[in-house]
Amino acid sequence: MGKMIVEDWGLVDYSDAFKRQKVLVQSVIAGAPDHLILCEHPPVLTLGRMTDPASLLYQREDIEQRGVAIETVDRGGDVTLHAPGQLVIYPIFDLNDQGRDLKVYMQKLEEVAVDLLKNFGILAISISGLRGVFVGEDKIISIGVGVRKWVTYHGLGINVNTDLSLFSLIKPCGLNVRMTSMQKLKGHAIPMKDVKTKIVERFQEHFR
């Protein structure tokens, strides 16, 4: 892997970010350098192609009334929630340079996530067979990855200061897990810019 271009898209609609990701995937396939995208999304539930309707615990209208948009996405996986305070990371990486191994890529993402949390004094673990990173039994980071021509898209959702009550709308990733956040674990809000700085460092460490 050569140079990694880091872009901060700020607060951006999920669907706009998804379109921009697709464009970037095409340019990385065509030879552009790897990109690391940082952003946050207004409240949105994204449903995958295989989403079990039972993962939504309320009627669509009730959810939208709470100011949460619903998007169906052309991807595998189950329902996911994004909201401000959750740092979303989209690595658009060419795995052709890195051995074309999904398992190795996922492991590296989990290592990045665990090391990031360690930087903030939080001891997290990844659990074999389960997506994401956990503190005790609570999920703090969601992971969902897509790959096209061995170029990655989608990525990580890190609950920094996320309003956790929003997760009561869904069973996250179809699991009966409770969600937590860095804010909840530390007892105070965490400056987003500090998390952004650290996550970029951890990516540069693990993907070089």
Binding site: G76, L102, K103, Y105, G144
Partner: peptide, 9 residues
């Protein structure tokens, strides 16, 4: 599109 436990391809 196929999915393994943690990624779709």
């Amino acid at each position: 599109e196929v999915v393994t436990d943690k990624a779709s391809f």
